[in-house]
């Protein structure tokens, strides 16, 4: 199911100089912000939760998910170089699964690690806040990667759709329309974080059971469907 050569090519493409800079910018901003907040207000659990929930989980993780998820396959389909993968005796779901693993790993490294560092800076993991949000980042990395990998497989405008989903749906509707929150990767991951953090500092609109089922279902379905789409991917000719 996992092909090391496909993985190597995907890592090299994803971590090319320009993309790596974009991937690194938001985590850097989070850490700079955390240092500034800590210096100005001191260690405060509520503030830590606000920064991690409002910026790291609501904005940074989905954007990094978009860049890594769509970037793991979209550019190859766009420029046609995916033909070198498709013209091999290699099962198409293997290509998708491998790219998913790479996208998850990249999203986790660029979102969960900085979330943990920022949490430690903000309040030294008081009430398990840093760990709780780190777990939320890890969990949502998986679902976002699967969703955006599928988007990268089916659409040429995957980055735009991905950003619209991440910023408009997750960040805006998620905070304004209660119903939208049930269908939000962010809320599902917060349900997991809620279990870990003490007190009511981390809250979610969905129960842990619902969240777990939805996370697993969305990840599995998106991955399966992307594999099917790749099997019948039509490479547009030059004519």
């Amino acid at each position: 199911m996992y092909d090391p050569t496909v993985a190597r090519l995907t890592y090299r493409a994803l971590l090319g100089r320009r993309r790596a800079l974009i991937l690194g910018a938001l985590p850097l901003l989070l850490i700079v912000l955390s240092v500034a907040v800590r210096a100005l207000t001191g260690a405060d659990d509520q503030t830590a939760s606000d920064v991690l929930g409002g910026f790291a989980i609501a904005t940074m993780v989905p954007i990094i998910g978009v860049i890594a998820g769509t970037g793991a396959i979209g550019p190859e389909i766009d420029d046609g170089s995916v033909v070198y993968l498709l013209s091999k005796p290699l099962k198409r779901p293997t290509i998708i699964f491998t790219k998913l693993i790479v996208a998850i790993a990249v999203t986790m490294v660029f979102s969960a690690v900085p979330t943990l560092i920022a949490g430690l800076i903000l309040n030294g993991n008081g009430q398990q806040i840093a760990v709780a949000y780190t777990v939320a980042a890890l969990v949502s990395s998986i679902a976002y990667s699967a969703l955006f990998l599928l988007l990268g497989t089916v659409s040429r405008h995957a980055v735009v759709f991905g950003l619209v989903y991440a910023l408009v749906w997750e960040a805006l509707f998620g905070s304004l329309v209660p119903g939208a929150r049930t269908l939000s990767v962010q809320q599902w991951s917060l349900a997991v974080a809620h279990k870990i953090a003490g007190g009511d500092l981390v809250t979610s609109d969905v129960s842990l059971t619902t969240a777990t089922v939805l996370l697993v279902a969305v990840t599995a379905l998106a991955t399966w469907y992307a594999g099917q789409k790749l099997r019948t991917l039509k490479l547009a000719g030059e004519e």
């Binding site: 090519l9 090299r12 493409a13 090319g16 420029d79 046609g80 170089s81 033909v83 070198y84 013209s87 091999k88 005796p89 290699l90 099962k91 198409r92 030059e238």
Partner: peptide
């Protein structure tokens, strides 16, 4: 997919993992 054990393809398009 298994047919590609017997087929070699030289596409017209230029793109080919330029970073390698």
């Amino acid at each position: 997919e298994r047919i590609y054990q017997h087929i070699g393809i030289v596409p017209e398009r230029e793109a080919m993992y330029d970073f390698l």
